[in-house]
């Protein structure tokens, strides 16, 4: 049958859900082992963060799409969590191979890393359901049963929901694409568009951590600064 935008969207959704069927909403045995190998076990912090951000996401999704869609928001979030765990495990496997270490305590206790990874997973889910499509393309079918045409859940909406700077989100995109080779061409394109938006505009807004980093770089790097006598 001929490919239509709706058929393409339905195929993407089925593919995403299919790819995540075997992924649980809890860390896999392998991922749990990475957590246990840490000097400080991040498990409880990870679960607590997911609970807090899950509530924020469902609530904000309901506000943006309609109060009857809070349950739908929760479903999107749960799918995002599965993808978050799946990609985290793949990233750690790749890092273990590259660095020959098994203790990722610092990374796995970094709240910004987890929030960025989760935000990217949620953006992939939202884009798959057509809820984060950029309107320049000319259509937005809200193929998951949500009429998102009147709402504003397009990127960078997710950054505001999880309270993340665009600059920190940017860091995770390339590794995310590398770690999940099953992402469709359209989703990769979507993430690339997010990347470009950050690079060209969002990272330069007032309050971006980029300015502090540029300042440090200009001063020769924070680590190289001469300590004052007092310290």
């Amino acid at each position: 049958p001929p490919q239509t935008p709706i058929r393409a969207a339905m195929t993407s959704i089925q593919q995403l859900r299919g790819d995540l069927t075997s992924s649980g909403d809890q860390p896999s045995t392998n991922l749990a082992t990475y957590f246990k190998n840490c000097t400080v076990d991040p498990t409880q912090d990870v679960l607590k963060r997911l609970e807090t951000l899950g509530q924020a996401f469902s609530q904000r999704f309901g506000q943006a799409v309609g109060p009857r869609c809070i349950v739908l928001g929760r479903q999107r979030f749960n799918l995002g969590v599965k993808l978050y765990y799946k990609v985290m495990e793949a990233m750690l496997k790749s890092e273990e191979k590259r660095l020959s270490v098994q203790n990722f305590s610092k990374l796995l206790n970094d709240s910004t890393f987890h929030t960025s990874l989760l935000a990217c997973a949620l953006e992939v889910v939202m884009a798959t359901y057509g809820e984060s499509s950029f309107r320049t393309g000319g259509y937005n079918h809200g193929s998951g049963g949500v009429d998102a045409a009147e709402t504003n859940v397009c990127f960078p909406w997710i950054l505001d929901v999880v309270n993340l700077s665009a600059f920190d989100f940017y860091k995770v995109i390339e590794s995310f694409i590398k770690a999940d080779p099953t992402l469709s061409k359209d989703i990769v394109k979507h993430l690339e568009t997010c990347e470009n938006l950050i690079m060209e505009r969002i990272a330069w807004r007032t309050g971006s951590p980029l300015f502090e980093l540029l300042k440090q770089e200009h001063e020769g790097g924070a680590a190289e600064q001469v300590e004052t006598p007092a310290s």
Partner: peptide, 21 residues
């Protein structure tokens, strides 16, 4: 396959990007 341009070098992973190496 997609046309995404991978810019990170082999020695750059997620650990370095979050300053955790």
């Amino acid at each position: 396959s997609h046309d995404y341009h991978f810019g990170l070098e082999d020695h750059e992973g997620i650990s370095e990007l979050f300053d955790c190496d």
